[in-house]
Amino acid sequence: MGKFNHILYSYLIFISCLINGIRSLKLTDFLVPDHAVIGSTVTLKCYFDVAFGTLNSVKWYKNEHEFFRYSPSISDIIAFPADGVIVDLNSSDKNKVTLKEINFNSSGLYKCEVSTDLPDFKIAFDSKNMSVVAYPEWGPVITDVAEKYSVGQTITANCSVAPSYPSPTLSWEINGRPVDSWDVSDKEVPGPGKLSSRRSTLQFIAEDQHFEGSNQALNIRCRAKLGTLTSSTLETTFTSTLAQSPDSLESALQRYRNTGAMINGTSHNITAVILLFLLFITRKVL
C-alpha cells in the first residue's frame, strides 16, 4: 500500500508540473511593424496569458532602454524618456503602446517584457527591429523621351525620383524586359539630412525589334525601390511609337540589314537598292 501511495504521489506531482508547464506565462501575440513612415503614428502590441499567475508588470524597451511600464500596483502607466520615442499615453495600455511623431531616431530594437508576481515569478519577452523610412514625394518620372522614333536613332531617357530614405535605386525595362547595366548610368544626389535622390540615364539604339504589336509601340519603364523594402516599389511607363514615312522606308531597309538579306542573293540586293532609291527620292521631295 505504501508503494502504491508513493507511485500515486509521484504521478500527481508529474501531472501538476505538466499542467503548470502548459499553463504558464506566455506571450500570445506580439506585433512591431518592420517599417514606420517618418512623421506617422505606430502602435506596438503585446498580448499575453499569465495562466495561474498574477501580473506584475508589462515593460517596453527600445535598444534595452525602458520607455514604458504598466503595473496593476500603480494607478497610472509610466513613460520614460528615450531617444526617438514619444509615447501617446491616452492611446496606450497593458497590451499596446502608441508612438507618435516617428522620426529617424525611432529606428531600433523594441522589446516587450511581461512578468508575474511571486511566488510564481516568471518572465516572458519578445523583440523585433523597426526601421523608419521616408517615401519620395514624387516620382519616378521619365523625361527627355520623344513620342516617335525611327530605327537607328539614339534614344536617351532620364528617370528621377524625389529624395527618400533609404536611398532609392532605379531600374529600367524595355517592353517588359530588364535592361543591361551597360546601357545605364546612375547618380545619387544627396538631399537634406538622411534623404537622398537618384537620377538614372538609359541610352540605346532603336532597333526594329523594339517596336512591338500592331501599333509598333516601344514601352520604357522606370522602377524605383527603397533599399531592400519589398513593398516600396514605384514605377512609371512612357510609350513611344515607330515614326512613319519617310522613316518607314529606312525601317524596311534596316530589317534587311538586320537579317543579312542583302548578301543572300541578287534579288535581295535589288530590293535593297530600290529601298535606298525610294528613301532618297522621298527625302528630296519632303
Rank of each mutant, 00 (worst) to 15 (best):
E250M: 12
N269P: 05
T266V: 03
I205E: 05
I86C: 08
T230G: 08
H35Y: 15
F52R: 02
I263P: 04
N63V: 06
S248Q: 10
K284V: 04
I270V: 15
T228Y: 04
V97R: 00
G191S: 09
R223Q: 09
T241M: 06
S196Q: 12
L279T: 13
P72L: 05
R198L: 00
L275P: 11
S231M: 06
S196E: 10
H210R: 13
G176M: 02
T259Y: 08
P136S: 02
L229C: 03
R69W: 06
D144N: 15
N103P: 03
P168L: 00
S200I: 07
L118T: 14
S92A: 03
E173T: 14
R198D: 07
T98D: 01
P163T: 05
S197T: 07
V145I: 14
D34Q: 12
N95P: 03
L8C: 12
A146E: 10
T154F: 06
G176F: 01
D34K: 10
V151T: 07
A51Y: 03
W138H: 11
Q209D: 10
Y9N: 11
L234A: 12
I77S: 14
P33V: 00
E66V: 15
S200H: 00
F52A: 11
G193H: 06
S240C: 05
I270F: 06
F67S: 06
S231L: 06
H210D: 12
S131I: 07
V273N: 09
M130F: 05
S127R: 13
L31T: 15
S181T: 13
V85M: 02
I74P: 09
L195S: 03
Y149D: 01
S57G: 07
L226R: 02
P192C: 04
F204S: 08
F30R: 14
S91L: 10
S16I: 08
R257S: 02
A124H: 05
Y110Q: 01
P246A: 09
T239D: 06
G191H: 12
A157V: 04
V37N: 11
S214P: 04
P190N: 05
E101Q: 13
K45T: 00
A146K: 15
I102T: 02
S171E: 14
T154S: 10
A272G: 14
R177V: 12
D247H: 14
L89I: 15
V273Q: 10
I38P: 01
A243K: 14
S160I: 02
T169R: 09
A224R: 15
A82E: 10
A79R: 06
L234S: 12
G84D: 04
P246D: 02
G108L: 05
Q209M: 10
T233S: 07
L278Y: 03
N129T: 14
F277P: 05
I274Y: 10
E173C: 07
W60K: 14
I205A: 08
I155E: 09
S24A: 12
L242N: 07
S73Y: 08
D93P: 00
I86K: 15
K194Y: 03
E173A: 09
F30Q: 10
S75H: 07
N219P: 04
Q153L: 07
V85R: 00
D183N: 13
L286V: 13
L275H: 11
L276S: 13
C46E: 00
Y9W: 11
P119A: 12
I142V: 12
N90T: 14
